[in-house]
Amino acid sequence: MLRLVARRLLKVIPLLLLVTVIAFGLLNLVPGDPAVQIAGEFATEEQIEAIRTELELDRPWLSRYGSWLSDAVRGDLGDSLFSGVSVRSQIWDRLPATVSLIGWSLVLSALIGIPAGTVAGWREGSALDRFLTVGTTIGVAIPVFVTGLVLALVVGIKLGWLPATGYVGITESPWQWARRLILPAFALALTGAAEIARQTRAGVIEVKKQDFVRVARANGLHTRQVLGKHTLKNAMIPVVTVVGLQIGRLFGLSVLVEQIFNIPGLGSRLITAVFENDVPFIQGTVLMLGTVIVLVNAGVDISYGYFNPRVRGS
């Protein structure tokens, strides 16, 4: 197992390097003179010059990449072009809301998706299975902004059961924090839950035909042992992959959900940054998200070692 972890973590290094190159290279994707483009239509010569100095555009890109990387490794992602505040502290400001939202959605989608898929797969072909299959098909098909808007309007505003907008930090009031995240997290979780349910169902159907499941039954094990232990652990391998993929997607979708529910997260800040051409902020966020996704994928690969002892490699 240790060898698997070491081997997998070693692979992370070149991937992370690639992420830094892409994040840094974003600046060079700006067509024409980046300084002119970034400064905008009505910028004065001085403003353009200031941006050029700030981004050190007169230096060759490799040397700029070098110093940017060495700063980034030490945690310095530069300053925002507009507010002048350091990118790192802005990301830190916005990150808790987004991480809370994504964390909640992941938990919700697993809590809904895994049991639903397990039941559907175990009782394949039953009325419940058909009901759940229709449900997950709809769940996968409905875009998140539709679910989000409907939930905000109906549950949040019309019924008034839960607050439809706003965010309260967990340190401020854990109760309000949880309450306000329910609707946005649920909206975000639905698609993921549907996909996890489908994958779990397929996995359970595949595994329950295996000889060892029949042996477990022949040995008189309880259904909770046959299904909950032997079937599920083997069925979880593809599910973990889906969950890992979800995390990357959730970061993307959270941009929309944060807009709908007015959550001051990274996504809404990123949108502003894109409109303002705030290159250092975009670079910093892309670098951070890229790193998170690379690490999540490594985590998923390592978790295979838990579910499938054969990949541990002794």
Binding site: Q210, D211, F212, G220, H222, F307, N308
Partner: peptide, 22 residues
């Protein structure tokens, strides 16, 4: 389930796939 494995046990043809690999 009280009978299976306790009073009547069974072994099968395919030992390669009959034990849970996990």
């Amino acid at each position: 389930r009280e009978v299976r494995g306790r009073r009547i046990a069974m072994i099968f043809q395919e030992p390669m796939t009959s034990i849970d690999p996990a």
